[in-house]
Amino acid sequence: MTLTILAFALSGLLMAGGAAVVALTRDLMRMVIGLGTFLLGVAGMFLFYGQAFLATAQVFVYVGGVLVLFVFAVMVVHRSSGGRPVLESRHDIGAAVIALGVSGMVILSLQDSVGGWLPASASGGAAIATELLGGHLVVFELLGALLLAALVAVLVIVGAGERR
């Protein structure tokens, strides 16, 4: 139980720390590193809730894929703008009040749905594969089509700039 609590605390710290870095830093690369820390924390949370396959997919797809895309985009924007990009923020009390209000509303509306400490349900990759390739095969195929459409869209968007 102690190890479980420690794992939850570590994942939560990674999530909160990464999110704080994304919100507060002025350096674009530090922001990307903060985002990576947050995504690792999310993978840890998936592990905590017994979703080992999701945690692996999170690390592969996000920390290994999307984060590299972010670094690539920062490099391209940095080269194009001719200087190290510094993040500007309009830190104002109104935005903070709106964000806190939304957080409070989520907590108030869902507080009755959460009980206990550690959920019992856990699943491996086999259970998810059974669901995806069984009753949710159409959804699975649609997700594949969505990814293909996103890939083609990325090629069209970036390729159009290349031809000019």
Binding site: G50, Q51, F53, L54, S121, A122, S123, A127, I128, T130, E131, L132, H136, V139, F140
Partner: peptide, 8 residues
């Protein structure tokens, strides 16, 4: 909920 459904 079933773990497989949550995961998918």
């Amino acid at each position: 909920a079933d773990g497989g459904v949550i995961g998918s």
